[in-house]
């Protein structure tokens, strides 16, 4: 299958202090991984597309090192000011008229947790889509997708061309091999300047730490004592039981 995977560079949310370290969005890594798995025994190539600053090339090389073949880098320095809709329009502009069987995105950005760009892109391109995929297989003329819904999983048949947004519950992305890393260094990245973007429809006014919880009580001791204390607290202090 001819895949195009939309990948994003995000700040590392795992870092305990703000290190400024940038990583490949975990959900996009799962999308790349699944495309690689599906194409394991075929000759079809996997393309990548990323909108981001010049420094985001390192993230593109990481995904190339996993095994993707080609990459387009739409250079845009202040990408953080764009909302999902602006991103989706830029991606649609670039992907219009392409002949991919499937376009993959992550189910959400790890930093903004929006979860919108995939569905927006599918609508702009006018192709069928499925979100929050936890499983994906190729069929004769498209994809069989298992998505995580509210009360269970739903299996959907999508005809190519289609779009799927991927959950990290789908797989564990491979660690690039040394050979992959060396190969990725030599790949020519197709670099283009971002076209004009309209004013984003939403604006982040400020970010601040959440209120936080009142400090709790940590209890140590014999299990019998701990349980007795907890029951008393739940009944008399918290009114929770």
């Amino acid at each position: 299958m001819k895949f195009c995977v939309c990948i994003k560079q995000v700040p590392d949310v795992q870092a305990s202090v703000q290190t400024g370290r940038m990583v490949l969005n975990a959900y996009d890594a799962s999308a790349v991984e699944q495309a690689l798995v599906i194409n394991e025994n075929g000759t079809d190539e996997i393309d990548l597309i990323l909108i981001g600053p010049a420094s985001a090339t390192e993230t593109i090389r990481k995904a190339l090192a996993m095994g993707a073949s080609n990459a387009t880098h739409i250079v845009m320095e202040n990408v953080a000011d764009l909302d999902s809709s602006a991103i989706a329009h830029l991606l649609a502009e670039s992907l219009k008229g392409s002949n991919y069987d499937a376009i993959l995105t992550g189910k959400q950005s790890q930093d903004s947790d929006s979860g919108l760009a995939g569905g927006m892109l599918a609508e702009l391109l006018g192709i069928p889509y499925a979100t929050n995929a936890v499983g994906m297989e190729a069929t004769a003329d498209g994809l069989l997708v298992t998505r995580q819904g509210d009360t269970g999983q739903e299996m959907l048949v999508l005809k190519a061309p289609c779009l799927v947004t991927c959950s990290n519950d789908m797989n564990n992305p491979r660690i690039p091999s040394l050979k992959g890393i060396m190969g990725a260094k030599r790949t020519t990245i197709n670099t283009v300047q971002a076209g004009p973007v309209g004013t984003p429809k939403t604006k982040v006014e400020k970010t601040f730490p959440p209120a936080g919880r009142a400090p709790g009580l940590k209890m140590e001791g014999e299990p019998e004592e701990l349980v007795a204390q907890l029951i008393t607290k739940l009944q008399q202090e918290a009114g929770a039981i």
Partner: peptide, 20 residues
């Protein structure tokens, strides 16, 4: 999950800004 499934596409179709 069912709403998240349609929010992006709906926003484009009806030209809405989205606060998810």
């Amino acid at each position: 999950e069912s709403i998240k499934d349609i929010a992006g596409a709906l926003a484009i179709r009806i030209d809405a800004a989205t606060l998810p």
